[in-house]
Design a protein around this nucleic acid. Structure first.
Length: 659
RNA sequence: GGGCGCGUAGCUCAGCUGGAUAGAGCAUCUGCCUUCUAAGCAGAGGGUCGCAGGUUCGAGUCCUGCCGCGCCUACCA
């Protein structure tokens, strides 16, 4: 739980825009007695100026005048505003504003980068949440990368964030793998344990889980194994429970290692086993009954179950046109997953009236500590939870269940917590038919016609995360080797590129787009990709290095870059456009946080990189003969470098040492 | 049946609270490596924004109805 380490970003454009809005708002009140919120847009075309005000359209109705006339009147009456060079009426009534480039350049030069203003409250983001019974696949990666990036975005904008990764170590999926070891492979704990300390134990379980699922399908009576394992795990006694814990703990380690490769980590891992043993559910059950959020069904198909009425969470009706109630406690007295999830969500907000204990699971070289829940108190335990807002990163297929959880909070009398519970949903990652063929997956005729095929852990159908990362590293290594044969850091560079490519690939789609995963696309390092953006960052650094080698040091920018210098140099449109784009980094990240859409950040990074690539091609910096212009170019390179690298750090993408 | 989402260039996707001539990447074609690395740059072709109505100064964007596709709708998670 921490504020960002992202110390700095220059957010001048945002501030400039705000000032302008305020000045204009004041003017409108005085001049037209009109109290309107001044909207500011980005003009469609750069030639229209830097800011477009549709204010005349807003006023047209009230003033009963055509927008164009109002815009003209406004333009004429408007007092001089700091940093505004001129205003212009365009289109059907837009008031376009051209920024004084010299003024703006100085503003950027003098702007002190400072940490974002600390926002009040505490945000809990829960992501990853992979069942600890098999290797992670690309679907899990989308979850983790989205969650991790959103965490970075929040920290970069000054929020206090705690990252949780919930571990369902007592569930059906773990039970099935345990059943596989014990009953299918007839192994006892002493035989299972050595496997768990082998590398890629998660791959062993991947196959075993698929095998067990298939066995259930062929021998339905063997599903009884699952019950036996679950009972053992729940009581915490017996060999099955022991195998279960050993397996789950080992797989969690595998998952943490996989995510670590992508720069993803967590603050705390709350486990299902502690929710069970600390009786979180009993506490929630009390409250749910007491506040009449659920009731005991006395007839019908749900007889003997405690259910939440369908009216509480949706207007959905079933095939018979009746409202669908949701079973929270089964007729045999056991609680469903949703029930436990309600208790967990209450805990996140600190309204359950119970808490975990914690111990340190591991400490990384950089000092980062991951805590894990325990049942026993320990000295100097940190406090987790007690959030003011909670984001649950969970795929959109579970929106129904998330609705039930939120309804639970509302019915319990926690309307604010309900309102602050956000299902940060995203669509699944499927496989393109072409990739299925590559993987040797046989497709039915039906599936061949579809644009994508759903992955299935149960069937062992999917692309394992570590395989994909390995494949990306190999591909990147090939490219790096061809450019820098035998160079020392090639392995590290290839890894940075692979991770950049993967994270970018998973982030470039908006959340509600189904990704049809395709190897060819994911392995591409050209165009709209992570490596393209990294390449721009690498080139910018190289220019700065070359400049220092050639001239000893960077120029004294404050001395050389005057208003006049900026004014004349920034007459050149491409230079101005790039500078302007760079100055919008902070705005882009804030907008992306507001809309909850990490893809906006990756798109911004790409556009910025494009803008620099053109600059790189058109303006040889070090070779520039005019000293003043050379200073401006190298300053711009430095400014770009800072802004892009900040944006990349928010995306969790590293800048390789070379490319 | 109901809930949610999607349908934009050959393919994969952007398009913020309605705004100016609908944008990228890939693929195709044409140029550019004795110049800070060509994982790059410049350019060309390619569109009835699923269909039909409506709302208004203005609709890819909002509303209604269709058509097609996906996911969800378990005493599984």
């Amino acid at each position: 739980m921490s504020r960002g380490k992202y110390a700095t970003i220059s957010n001048v454009f945002h501030l400039f825009q705000k000032q302008l809005q305020e000045a204009l708002g004041g003017f409108l009140r005085r001049h037209f007695q009109a109290d309107v919120a001044v909207q500011v847009e980005q003009p469609k075309q750069a030639s229209f100026g830097e800011l477009a005000l549709p204010v005349a359209f807003q006023l047209a109705k009230a003033l009963k005048k055509p927008p164009k006339a109002i815009a003209a009147e406004l333009s004429a009456a408007l007092p001089r505003l700091d940093g505004v060079k001129e205003t212009e009426v365009a289109g059907n009534g837009y008031l376009n504003i051209r920024i004084d480039r010299g003024y703006y350049g100085l503003l950027l030069l003098e702007s002190v980068s400072r940490p974002p203003e600390a926002k009040p409250g505490k945000i809990v983001v829960e992501h990853t949440n992979i069942n600890p019974n098999k290797a992670a696949h690309i679907g899990h990666l989308r979850n983790a990368v989205l969650g991790d990036t959103f965490v970075r975005m929040l920290k970069a904008t000054g929020h206090c964030v705690e990252t949780q990764n919930y571990i369902d170590n007592t569930g059906v999926q773990v039970a099935d793998v345990v059943a596989g070891f014990r009953f299918l492979r007839h192994m006892r704990w002493p035989e299972v344990y050595p496997l768990t300390v082998q590398p890629r134990f998660d791959y062993v379980c991947w196959d075993l889980y698929a095998q067990t699922s298939q066995h259930y399908k062929d021998n339905p009576e063997s599903v009884a194994w699952r019950q036996e394992v679950l009972h053992s795990i729940e009581s915490g006694e017996g060999e099955l429970a022991r195998i279960g814990h050993t397996v789950a703990d080992a797989i969690v380690e595998c998952h943490l290692a996989t995510m670590r490769r992508l720069g993803i980590t967590y603050d705390v891992l709350p486990r299902e086993s502690e929710i069970l043993h600390l009786q979180f559910w009993a506490k929630a059950f009390e409250q749910l009954k007491e506040r009449k959020a659920i009731y005991l069904e006395e007839e019908g198909k749900n007889k003997g179950c405690w259910v939440m009425p369908g009216s509480a969470f949706s207007g959905a009706t079933n095939a018979e046109g009746e409202e669908d109630n949701k079973v929270i406690v089964r007729s045999n007295g056991t609680v469903t997953y949703v029930g436990k999830d309600i208790a967990y969500q209450m805990w996140k907000f600190g309204v359950l009236g119970k808490d975990f204990h914690y111990r340190v699971l591991k400490t990384y070289e950089d000092g980062h500590v991951i805590w894990i829940s325990t049942t026993e108190p320990a000295p100097n335990e940190p406090a987790f939870g007690h959030a003011t807002q909670v984001f649950n990163v969970i795929d959109s297929r579970q929106s129904y269940l998330q609705d039930v959880v939120v309804a639970g909070l509302r019915q319990l009398g926690y309307p604010e917590q309900a309102a602050q519970s956000v299902h940060f949903s995203y669509e699944m990652v499927a496989l393109s038919p072409r990739t299925c063929v590559e993987l040797g997956i046989e497709l039915s005729e039906e599936d061949q016609k579809r644009p994508y095929v759903e992955v299935s852990g149960r069937k062992g159908l999917g692309v394992k995360a570590d395989d994909l990362i390995d494949k990306l590293i190999e591909a990147a290594l090939g490219e790096v080797e061809s450019r820098h044969p035998g160079a020392e850091a090639n392995r590290q560079v290839a890894t940075d590129i692979a991770v950049g490519a993967l994270r970018y690939f998973l982030l470039k789609f908006t959340r509600n787009t189904v990704i049809a995963f395709d190897f060819q696309e994911a392995l591409s390092f050209q165009g709209d990709t992570g490596p393209y953006v990294q390449y721009a960052a690498v080139r910018a650094r190289k220019i700065l290095r070359n400049y220092e080698e050639r001239f000893g040091a960077l120029p004294d920018f404050n001395a050389v870059l005057t208003h006049e210098a900026f004014s004349s140099c920034l007459e050149e449109e491409p230079l101005w456009q790039m500078l302007l784009a760079c100055s919008k980094a902070g705005l882009a990240i804030e907008a992306a946080v507001a809309s909850g859409e990490p893809s906006q950040v990756s798109r911004f990074a790409f556009n910025l990189a494009q803008s620099f690539s053109t600059f790189y091609h058109d303006y040889p910096v070090v070779a520039e003969e005019n000293a003043r212009k050379r200073a401006l170019l190298v300053w711009m390179t430095q400014y770009f470098s800072r802004q892009l690298e900040h944006t990349l750090s928010v995306l969790g993408i590293r800048v390789p040492a070379y490319m």
